[in-house]
């Protein structure tokens, strides 16, 4: 017994190093569980506050770009108003059914909340950014985040006033995409190569596709409402060995200068998830 203590004392430095190293590696490889750990939430609040301070200054340098993207979003939304459409034929009358717009909110599926981006990273293979909105303001894990221009990411951890968002530029991120023109769906990934390009896979070669086509979010994903722009096609790789295209997309969101985001809550996600899990259990 005494020899063990002597041994430990002799190699104390090494053992201490080993313990620290194992602690670090444990955190790294159990990252998903670690997210929910309590002190990660506290760290989140502190880094969030520091980032907010820095962002107050940095925000000025992006004002022009931010204004432009917000104005463009306004233009797009205004063009979707029903008052913009009028039919010349008098036999066709535009009537608004009052029932789908009921005020009880039963039929609402997506709820949007504005959130300020306080910190962003682009240099890693796995990138995250922080937004200034947390559980106190209704943000929870697994909510989609969009920018005025398009898809940004998914919330992975929320503390009281700040949330951590897994960016689309993350090796494990995957968004269900749809070709806007034809409606065919595929999966959108990031290959870690460039901060403004993502890859779309699993798109059958029978689909007519040209450079410049828009890829939007599909109706199958639970995080994002259908029709949010992901990116536009810049390169079509014709893989001879398979029946699927590999598309290179330019992301709609400019990740290096994005300042405002919207957190999308899918109010019916829980019901859908419960139903799908029940089916899985029965099989």
């Amino acid at each position: 017994m005494r020899n063990i203590f002597v041994f430990i004392r002799k190699f104390f430095n090494f053992f201490f190093f080993l313990v620290m190293q194992i602690a670090a590696l444990y955190m790294l490889f159990h990252y998903n569980q670690f997210h929910e750990a309590a002190f990660m939430g506290v760290a989140n609040e502190i880094t969030g506050k520091v980032s907010k301070r820095y962002n107050n200054i940095e925000y000025y340098f992006h004002l022009k770009k931010t204004n432009e993207s917000l104005a463009k979003e306004n233009e797009r939304l205004r063009n979707m108003l029903k008052e913009d459409f009028e039919v010349a034929d008098t036999s066709a009358v535009l009537k608004t059914d009052s029932i789908p717009y009921d005020t009880t909110g039963i039929r609402r599926k997506y709820l949007y909340r504005d959130a300020k981006v306080v910190n962003r990273f682009l240099v890693f293979p796995n990138n995250y950014f922080s937004i200034h909105r947390g559980t106190n303001q209704g943000v929870r894990k697994d909510m989609g985040v969009i920018s005025p221009d398009g898809v940004m990411g998914v919330v992975v951890n929320a503390s009281e006033n700040y949330s951590v968002v897994m960016s689309l530029l993350h090796l494990q991120s995957s968004v269900s995409g749809r070709v806007k023109k034809s409606g065919e769906t595929g999966q959108v990934y990031w290959d870690g190569k460039s901060s403004d390009a993502v890859i779309m896979k699993n798109l059958p070669k029978s689909v007519p596709i040209t450079k410049g086509d828009s890829i939007v979010t599909s109706q199958y994903g639970t995080y994002f409402p259908p029709g949010i722009l992901i990116g536009t096609v810049t390169e079509i790789v014709d893989d001879k060995s398979s029946n699927f295209y590999v598309l290179k997309l330019k992301t709609a969101t400019n990740f290096s200068s994005v300042e405002h985001s919207m957190v999308v809550e899918n109010l019916q996600a829980e019901e859908q998830k419960k139903l799908e899990e029940a089916v899985k259990k029965n099989q």
Binding site: N13, F14, F17, M20, Q21, A23, A24, L25, Y26, M27, L28, F29, Y31, F34, M40, A43, N44, I46, T47, V50, S51, N119, F121, F124, N126, Y128, S130, N157, V164
Partner: peptide, 19 residues
């Protein structure tokens, strides 16, 4: 790591060079 949200990544490398 707490800033970049990658707990353990930089800590592991730093511990090694510190040792």
């Amino acid at each position: 790591d707490f800033f970049t949200k990658t707990p353990g990544l930089h800590a592991a490398a730093c511990t090694l060079i510190g040792y």
